[in-house]
Design a protein around this nucleic acid. Structure first.
Lengths: 186, 186
DNA sequence: TTTTTTTTAGGACATTTGTCCAGTAAAATA
DNA sequence: TATTTTACTGGACAAATGTCCTAAAAAAAA
């Protein structure tokens, strides 16, 4: 986590030591939940090892995958973390996972501690926004087949590590249709 | 614009005066462009009066509406503004529009000026993120008909002020299909 | 390893959505 | 106001995608 923060901001060793003090660690077994819907998300995690999946459940009881996070990436219900309202999504480990955890109080302490932390927080939020926007645009601009092809070109990792049923809803389609697309593309 | 910033942060009169000095004004006629694709977006605007539409053009040459902004709302190609890369979208006035403009240099001056501005920037970015996330979720969770119904219930304004062809692509469907949905819903 | 459970592929058919188009309504322009 | 342009609706058909289901493959559990 430290390295990612350093990549967006030039921190003093004092600022970084504070971070070290505030980070805690946690392990999840495959299938364990980091967050369940209707809970307030009070922590942001950074994945040292493993994979997390965020999903919500629609009115038919189907799981709709919102996003995945891999090693060296952050995960949270950012909407819940930001608004302090309950989350609509669940976050579950797709494999045994090791996490660095920064909870709300820790983050608030960083923000209060220095201008640098405040600025880093803004920059990181901006980057999350840009990522989300890219995903949004891909939904409006591309067909399901094109979204799969993009994944196939640029995120081979997803195809290797994630069960297809989860990828399907991530792409906004049913597993039946993903199967059709894969047959046509490969 | 000032009122919106004040709603997220407790500013001193000095901080607010600086904002006053940095804001500039601009008017657009209906049809005028605020930004064209392949330009870098270097300003964030706040709408005093009028409506803006952001859209990009897909590989078939069709205009896909990304979002709308009404009075008392901000607009920009945030992705381009943040990354300083060229924008993929165009921003056009759907009606005669009066704007407050904050350009990149002005915003940087605010951010440098005080902790409060830095924090306000983070909070505003967070709110933009949450809004975008809601829209993303509606695309994954709802059918086109449900998205239209939600608009019908909660954003009557959109239906009154925005040509249906633009609403269609905003909802992720063709005008032909929107016409079908409207007939079924009303 | 054997058994059980879960995941994936794909057939058959239904529904949704898109494409192309023409007629009408509405808006912009002369 | 008259004329021209643009926007909206809806028919007919095509393509994309979903639903339901079964069998095979893969993974997990016994």
């Amino acid at each position: 986590m430290k390295a990612v923060f350093q990549s967006v901001q030039d921190f003093s060793s004092e600022e970084l030591m504070l971070l070290d003090d505030l980070i805690t660690f946690r392990k999840l077994k495959k299938g364990d939940f980091l967050l369940k819907e209707n809970q307030v998300c009070n922590e942001i995690v950074f994945i040292e090892k493993g994979i997390l999946r965020s999903f919500f459940v629609n009115h038919k009881g189907e799981e709709i995958t919102n996003c995945f996070a891999f090693e060296n990436e952050f995960m949270a219900s950012f909407a819940s973390f930001i608004t302090k309202e309950t989350a609509e999504e669940n976050i579950q480990a797709l494999a045994d996972t090791e996490l660095q955890v920064l909870d709300r109080k820790a983050l608030e302490r960083l923000y209060k501690f220095s201008f640098n932390w405040q600025e880093a927080g803004r920059k990181m939020t901006e980057l999350e926004f840009v990522n989300l926007q890219k995903r949004m645009v891909s939904f409006q601009k591309l067909s399901a087949t094109q979204r799969y092809e993009e994944l196939y070109q640029n995120h081979q990792k997803y195809l290797q590590l994630i069960p297809l049923q989860y990828l399907a809803s991530y792409l906004g389609i049913t597993p039946r249709h993903l199967s059709r697309i894969r047959k046509a593309v490969v």
